[in-house]
């Protein structure tokens, strides 16, 4: 395989990380919490899509929408039941709760669907020909779909945050909840919407992930979840462009490390790069340094 091939597949993996990282970074920006259950929402979305598409043969588009709806609802419910009662609690309590929710979702999946891997059918591509060739470069349909989806999400989300009333309200809440309330902004609704968007995107990421790596188990979401969290920190947590940049870079670094250095230590290399970046830029690539309140 050529360097270009590795780069494209790294870009595709990075796109998945980026879409997941958005969920972490948006929730962190607004609720100032790390939602460690986010990776498991990915897994639930993948199972929903697996049953709808692979098992019951529904239209792939409808299957994706269904998975997104389920995850959106799940995100809202998790926030209402687990995190909202802790709005005034120390952040450590919220963090532990998030880890608890993560295990709850994994074990629920284990009970419902067992630990036997399910073989996920990619949602695009024809049997026998899953890829096409352009100028000597072989690209799978899933790779193309992943990169295109990531770009579309990036454009839509950036426009939403910068242009719409609700998007601006989200930025206001992220900066100062008290002042936002004094503007007549319903802070709880804004936080719910943020969880809804993040979780809906998690479903998309899960489906793309399982289309590329078709082994679906109850722990499918954990590792990509942690890596996407790393990507969010790498890019600067709380920053939406940072999540994209961090995700894409992480995917590319991981893939190139696998190709040219070693498959076994590729993860160590990825996290090593993170450590170096954070030593030099503690707020991440595009993160803003924390401002002291005066």
């Amino acid at each position: 395989m050529s360097f270009l091939n590795y780069l494209v597949s790294g870009l595709s993996l990075g796109s998945i990380y980026a879409i997941i990282a958005l969920g972490y970074t948006m929730v962190y920006g607004i609720a100032k919490m790390l939602n460690f259950a986010h990776g498991d929402v990915i897994m639930i979305g993948s199972y929903v899509c697996f049953f709808a598409f692979t098992r019951y043969g529904l239209n792939p588009f409808i299957s994706v929408i269904l998975a997104m709806l389920v995850c959106t609802m799940l995100g809202i419910v998790i926030e209402k039941l687990a995190y909202k009662p802790l709005r005034a609690a120390p952040s450590l309590a919220v963090l532990i709760t998030a880890i608890g929710v993560s295990y709850l979702l994994q074990n629920m999946a284990l009970l419902l669907w067992s630990s036997n891997p399910k073989v996920f059918t990619p949602i695009v591509g024809k049997p026998g020909s899953n890829s096409f060739t352009i100028g000597g470069l072989t690209v799978s349909y899933v790779t193309l779909l992943t990169i295109v989806t990531c770009v579309v999400i990036m454009i839509v989300l950036t426009t939403f945050i910068s242009r719409t009333k609700l998007g601006k309200a989200m930025r206001a809440v992220s900066e100062d909840k008290g002042a936002a309330q004094l503007m007549g902004i319903d802070v709880n609704t804004t936080i719910s919407v943020t969880f809804a968007i993040g979780s809906g995107l998690a479903a998309v990421a899960g489906i793309l992930l399982c289309s590329a790596y078709p082994n679906l188990t109850p722990t499918t979401g954990s590792m990509p979840g942690i890596k996407a969290f790393t990507a969010a920190v790498f890019g600067g947590i709380g920053s939406i462009p940072g999540a994209f940049l961090g995700g894409l870079l992480l995917g590319i670094i991981e893939n190139l490390a696998k190709a040219y250095i070693s498959t076994q230590i590729s993860d160590a290399i990825v996290f090593g790069v993170l450590i170096i970046v954070l030593l030099v830029k503690p707020a991440g690539l595009l993160g803003k340094p924390m401002r002291e309140k005066v």
Partner: peptide, 29 residues
């Protein structure tokens, strides 16, 4: 936020404008 909807609005101590939003976006909020 419902109190604001009823027409009782406060300018808080220390102004608390949104420093990351533009002037016009602040006003829109």
């Amino acid at each position: 936020h419902k109190i604001v909807e009823r027409g009782l609005v406060m300018v808080p101590e220390g102004r608390r404008i949104f420093t990351q939003l533009t002037v016009e976006e602040n006003l829109e909020m």
